[in-house]
Computed example of a mutant assay.
Amino acid sequence: MMSPDTIRNIVGIIGNVLTFGLFLSPVPTFWKIFKRKDVEDFSPIPYLATLLNCALWVFYGSPSVHPNSLLIITINGFGLVVEALYIFMFFFYGKGRLRKKILLILAAEIAFMAVAALIVLKVGHTVETRSKIVGSLCVVFGTFMYASPLSIMKLVITTKSVKYMPFYLSLAGCLNGIDWTIYGFIHFDLFVVLPNGIGALLGLAQLILYGCYYKSTPKDDDEPKGEMELPTTQPAGR
């Protein structure tokens, strides 16, 4: 019989594979944006939220905050680079007002990370204290990240169309949230369980909406089948 640690490691590996796939899953959306030279009705907010979330988890996994967390740093560092590329695409193909909005949000995120890092390193005199502070921030902003598709869910209900909320992304997001929730429960870690549990519930809600409005969605042969309006989850653990 496998030990809890072995099961947790297996669940964590599966979660990392899912997370890696989720970070790359918006590629069809941005291929469409590239071909049409237009961001259409796609929103940059989920990507901006995920960017901040990845930055926080990279900070959480740093040796000065949570030592021996290389896996957290590598997967979220990869996500940080990928999300930055997606945001650049929004900036490049977006209109003036959208560009200004992106720049303002990015400036706020950079300022927030700088202030947070300064306060944590000055106030937190032990690794445990720093882990708790940064972990709490990850929970808060991870919840905001998961909440970012709510506007898309509202759009689905209003238009009775799932064009901007594809099935496979919603399914993957739901499974990813479930996987990391299980991971967090094996050796209970609230920082993992809470945001990923919320993500799993929101992913399930999107699947339900997809089932309700799939038939009423206008068919578009040029539509990629993997568009991303669901932010990715993050691996975390101790």
Rank of each mutant, 00 (worst) to 15 (best):
M1I: 06
V11K: 02
G15Y: 05
G21V: 09
P28V: 12
K37C: 03
D41F: 10
Y47D: 02
A49K: 00
L51D: 00
W57N: 12
W57G: 09
Y60A: 05
S62M: 14
V65F: 07
H66K: 09
P67A: 05
I73A: 08
I75Q: 14
G77H: 09
L80K: 01
A84H: 02
M89S: 15
G94V: 07
L98V: 08
K100H: 09
I102K: 12
A111P: 12
F112D: 10
M113S: 10
I119Q: 00
V127G: 03
R130I: 06
V134D: 05
S136C: 14
C138V: 08
T143W: 00
F144D: 07
A147E: 02
S151E: 06
K154S: 05
L155C: 06
V156G: 05
T159N: 13
Y164P: 06
M165D: 01
P166E: 02
Y168N: 13
L169Q: 10
G173D: 04
G173N: 14
L175T: 13
G177V: 07
F188Q: 06
L190K: 13
G199T: 03
L202V: 10
G203H: 05
L209R: 04
G211I: 08
Y213V: 00
K215M: 01
P218T: 10
P218N: 02
K219A: 13
D220L: 08
